[in-house]
Amino acid sequence: MDWTALILSLKLAFWTTAVLLPIGVVAARFFAWRRFAGKSLCEALLAVPLVLPPTVLGYYLLVSMGGNSAMGKWFESIAGHSLVFSFSGLLVASIIFNLPFAIQPMQRSFEAIEPDVLSAGACCGMSPWKIFLSIELPLAWPGIVSAMVMTFAHTIGEFGVVLMVGGSIPGETRTIAIAIYDRMQAFDNTRAGMMSAVLLFISLAAIAVAYATTGRYGKRV
């Protein structure tokens, strides 16, 4: 069992989820309620990671974050190391890759809030911040939980993008999915099987938690 790889995967999933939570809420509210020219194009671009082969996305991320790219150079000048083949690069790639998994469920749940309910909040004298905390968040909560769980579970299991952008550096970029692949390449079926079972358990547990939370909440509402 490659504990280092498991901990790295959990760490990556945690930070991806943590960063995407506020980004997702802001973007989801924006797309749910604003109308602007090019909205459909923006939504389509955000959904691209759902259909693009992970290796293709990984390739473009590798090229755009590499040492010769503007972003790569800028990152190296302030961080002192390259963005690709590092945990930071992996995190950036993982955030981009998971954008639709985080935003879409949240957007659907913000869209489901009746606009008059928010107007009622304003007519009750609630400040916009209070409306957000007391009305929007509780009502969108099932979608937010679902988005977080999907992002977390999806990051733990991601293989293609992680391999392209991060390679397989132990303790830095070798996640549990890559470790399983490495063990299979080495005909180490026992450890590959054990790690697969752990991954399966984590995924099932995450989905169960999401269903239980949203289901219980749905009954209360």
Binding site: E114, D116, V117, S119, A120, G121, C123, C124, G125, M126, K130, S134, I135, P138, L139, R220, V221
Partner: peptide, 24 residues
């Protein structure tokens, strides 16, 4: 005081909490 066509009550709050929400 605004009464909406479909009432627009806060569905996650009790009737009391709905009323108290307008008492800031």
């Amino acid at each position: 005081g605004f009464v909406f066509q479909h009432y627009a009550l806060f569905p996650h709050m009790s009737a009391m909490a709905n009323i108290a929400a307008a008492m800031g």
